[in-house]
């Protein structure tokens, strides 16, 4: 799986995080973007969503580059996090652009995609089991993506969590990062 790490791109990485409103898609994008800034990159983060607080497609775009970024949104994702069947079908299968897709099997039933590394991270199931609720599942997914792609470090993600999320849940959030990392490692061994 190391060949998917960030050495292979031309210095620009486009990440699409796609799910439904209410799943923490946008905060995932913000944590990823802030972590990338800490690592010394040019970064843009943007989001597309409807007027509803819950439900409906929500996507978060993160572009990470070693150059100032002209166009700030994701055109063709290199990496994708899929947290709903609808967005998996639309972006991962339909457009077939991402080289790496990290998905949550609780929501997504994957199909074979030639040339695409697909990593299942059972974030929702695990979060419910470990924390008694699905809230931290987005951080498990993000840590999974970070592990597979090498885009950002755990240290930078923890600092971004400290800046953006409630201290009350700090321990759980950090534990979620660890879980995501381990799960992606496990999935990688099987791949």
């Amino acid at each position: 799986m190391t060949d998917q790490k960030k050495t292979q791109s031309n210095g620009k990485y486009q990440v699409l995080i796609a799910g439904e409103a209410g799943q923490g898609v946008i905060i995932q994008g913000i944590i990823l973007a802030e972590s990338a800034v800490a690592s010394g990159a040019w970064v843009t983060q943007s989001a597309r969503y409807g007027a509803a607080m819950r439900g409906g497609v929500a996507t978060s775009d993160v572009v990470i580059s070693n150059q100032p970024i002209d166009f700030p949104e994701v055109e063709k994702p290199d990496y994708m996090i899929a947290i709903s069947q609808l967005t998996y079908d639309k972006f991962a299968v339909g457009k077939r652009e991402a080289r790496v897709v990290v998905y949550d099997p609780f929501f997504v039933k994957p199909v074979e995609l030639e040339g695409v590394t697909q990593v299942g991270v059972a974030a929702t199931d695990t979060a419910i089991k470990v924390f008694g609720g699905a809230q931290a599942s987005n951080l498990i997914m993000l840590a999974g993506l970070a592990e597979v792609t090498g885009l950002v470090s755990t240290k930078d993600m923890i600092e971004a969590i400290d800046r953006n999320l409630s201290k009350k849940f700090r321990e759980n959030n950090i534990r979620a990062l660890e879980i995501g990392k381990e799960m992606a490692q496990e999935a990688g061994k099987g791949a």
Binding site: V43, T44, Q45, S46, P72, E73
Partner: peptide
């Protein structure tokens, strides 16, 4: 909206 809601360096 695109610039107002975007996050950048």
């Amino acid at each position: 909206e695109a610039i107002g809601h975007a996050r950048e360096n």
